[in-house]
Simulated assay, not measured.
Amino acid sequence: MKDVSSSVVLVQARASKLGLVLPAALTLALLAGCGGSSGEAAAAASAAVPTETKPALTVTVTRPQSAQLAGGLLANGNVMAWQEAIIGAEVNGLRLAAVHVNVGDKVSRGDELARFASEIPYAAALQAQANYENAKSEADRVRALGEEGIYSRSQLTQIYTAEKVAKAQWEAAQVTLAATRVLAPDDGVISARNATVGAVESTGNELFRMVRQGRMEWRAEVTPAEIGRVKIGQQVEVTTVSGLQVQGQVRAIAPTADPQTRNILVYVDLPRNEALKANTFARGIFTLPASAALTVPAQSVVLRDGHSYVFVVDGQSRVSQRKVEVGRRVGERVELLQGLTPLEAVAVQGAGFLNEGDVVKVVQ
């Protein structure tokens, strides 16, 4: 076998002097014809014919683009009633004769929400009026006769005081009679009802709650490190758990932080919308001034194990997995804060199926 190999080498050397290159197949034939084994021929064929790696996937690629993106500060919070009025009983020991509204009803200022039985207050008002008229008549008679010489100073004081007391009692009885009608203090929506027909209420008992003017607000929780980026009048896009998106505006910023969470409340006025429900969770984005950013299509960013990656495609169509930090997202483009340079190409379509070291076919 050593002589056979020497003969093949001699033939290749003479061909080289003449400027010829023996085909690989011819070299194999010489080896086989000189008594080489089939295993040796196969080994020589594998060494002589190079293997070609097939592409794992067909992908499209792109390079990062610079763009001016509007900034945004993300925060969580709750949708709450702007002001919730508590409407209570102003009379004591009276029976509720009628209730006119229920939860969800819209009311206007001055509408009658409920009414207490008024027989007792009405009778008390009539009695007070009679007492006042009697005291006033006596006082008028004394004033007509003249104050000097007939009555002593103490008698005059007693008569005039009785008149004033009787008048005050009459006015109080009128107020009590008027309080038997429970009226809406403002326009709004009834949010809670505790009033029940036939119940005997005490002064101060809560009968209804009302969202004043139907207004809602979003109370966002912002960390002390980010509160400096929030300003009065700033625009906010609020998204509720139901997917409803509304545009709000910052009305006020709390002067102190919550002692438990250490976050600062930001009060955002929301437009009137019946789909907004108080005491529900919502996310919001505070609009910040636009700034330069390096962006790639959102499709090129792959989330794995809680981290964001892109697949960089080199000149030999081989990909490498690169960990990146993402920032703002506008439409179908995502900001890359670090991990990629503007000159590198990344896989877009098909990026989610790639792995480190894959060879790909790039198409336009």
Rank of each mutant, 00 (worst) to 15 (best):
R63E: 01
R63S: 14
P64T: 10
P64G: 06
P64S: 08
P64Q: 02
Q65E: 15
Q65I: 03
S66M: 13
A67K: 06
Q68E: 07
Q68L: 12
L69N: 07
L69F: 01
L69C: 06
L69P: 08
L69M: 13
A70C: 03
A70N: 15
G71R: 04
G71K: 01
G71D: 02
G72E: 13
G72D: 09
L73T: 03
L74D: 14
L74G: 14
A75G: 05
A75L: 05
N76T: 08
G77A: 09
G77R: 07
G77K: 05
G77I: 04
N78V: 14
N78H: 07
N78S: 13
V79T: 01
V79Q: 01
V79C: 04
V79Y: 00
M80K: 11
M80Y: 13
A81V: 11
A81I: 07
W82T: 03
W82R: 10
W82S: 09
Q83E: 08
Q83H: 15
E84Q: 14
E84A: 12
E84M: 09
E84V: 15
E84D: 11
A85I: 11
A85Q: 15
A85H: 10
I86K: 13
I86Q: 15
I87L: 05
G88E: 00
G88I: 10
G88M: 02
G88V: 11
A89F: 14
A89D: 03
E90L: 09
E90H: 08
E90G: 01
E90P: 00
V91Y: 12
V91E: 02
V91T: 12
V91N: 08
N92G: 09
N92A: 04
N92I: 09
G93F: 02
G93P: 01
G93V: 12
G93W: 05
L94R: 04
L94K: 09
L94T: 02
R95Q: 04
R95M: 05
R95F: 13
L96V: 15
L96K: 11
L96Y: 07
L96F: 12
L96S: 06
L96G: 03
L96R: 07
A97N: 04
A97F: 04
A98T: 14
A98Y: 08
V99S: 02
H100R: 10
H100M: 01
H100G: 05
H100V: 05
H100A: 06
V101P: 15
V101D: 05
N102C: 10
N102H: 04
V103L: 09
D105R: 02
D105V: 09
D105T: 11
D105P: 12
D105G: 04
K106A: 06
V107F: 07
V107T: 04
V107D: 04
S108F: 02
S108L: 05
R109L: 10
R109F: 02
R109M: 07
R109Y: 01
